[in-house]
Simulated assay, not measured.
Amino acid sequence: MVFNPAAKGEKASRVRDQILALSHGARVLETRHPEDAQELAAQAAQEGFRTVVAAGGDGTINGVVNGIALSDARLGVLPIGTMNLFAAELGIPPRLEAAWEVIAAGHERAIDLPFAGSRYFVQLAGIGLDAQVVKETDRTFRKNFGPVSYMVSLAQIAGRKPPLIRIRTREGTEHEGTFALIGNGRYYGAPLPIFRDAVPDDGKLDVLLFRGFGPLEILRYLQGLVFGTHLDMKDVEYLQCAGLSAESEGEAPVEVDGELIGDLPIEIGIADRRLRVVIPETRSAGGGSATAS
């Protein structure tokens, strides 16, 4: 198990004790820096562990996934972070005891493994505004205040002029906008089911491309995302594709699963191999099936 104590701040000691009490016989490795999760997970996979558990938020899960992606290990999730979108997507319960029962039962599902450049992700990639918010939000502020911290950064960014982003899908269609969200599942943010047709194992990326910008436009988009009316907006485009390339006329950052990875240009697609994830037996988001192992 790869445990990120920073995911629970001052509560880390109590959460650590809970995890140790639950995980009889499991090796628990703690991260000290954000990059540790990938290294520790890769080490566990190389040593032959069949299941590597990410105990943290979406950023910790991302690190663990990048550590085991090229191995035969499967992913388990204990959702103890600020944002737990991936766990919500797959129906993994938020209570530690219930989440551990899911891992112990061992039912799994193979899902798509998207990538952005050289980095794999499981839930979401953001280009432009979303990634700029991640870039300008202090990690400590984010940990202590959660979604509120992002709103503070968003308010500061909304008045700037954004670069034009150009996207070309693998199918050959071309699109333009000011920022984009790319999903492997339905959820973003609160979590909000903003990607209407997304299924984690359908071999497709779901893309939302926004053409407007500015304080009023962004407020309108946020209201649309919250109330589910964003797909009715004429300046919001929703598409599905097997992969895409993105470039911009100015600097545009990119984030995956809430972690900044660089700037455009970038290629985003789905890897040939899949990611095996331990999920609840009765839960199969998007119609897939869980198998015992």
Rank of each mutant, 00 (worst) to 15 (best):
L113V: 02
P94E: 14
Y221V: 14
A87Q: 12
P94L: 14
Q223Y: 10
F195V: 04
T31E: 03
V134G: 10
E255Y: 02
R168V: 12
D232E: 14
L96Y: 00
P94R: 13
A110D: 04
H107D: 11
G224V: 02
V256C: 13
E249L: 15
R74G: 15
I268Q: 10
H107V: 03
E251T: 08
S149H: 06
G243Y: 01
D112P: 06
G128E: 00
R142T: 13
L154T: 14
A180Y: 07
A252I: 10
R211A: 15
A190W: 03
L264C: 13
A105W: 06
A155L: 07
L239I: 12
V207H: 05
F179I: 08
L90P: 01
E47K: 04
D263T: 10
P163R: 01
E255S: 07
A42H: 13
S293I: 04
P94D: 14
S118V: 02
G287C: 01
V277S: 05
F86N: 00
G63T: 04
L205T: 00
I127T: 01
V148T: 11
L164Y: 00
G91H: 07
Q156V: 09
L239W: 02
A26H: 01
I157E: 13
V152F: 13
G57D: 05
D17C: 08
S284I: 03
A44N: 06
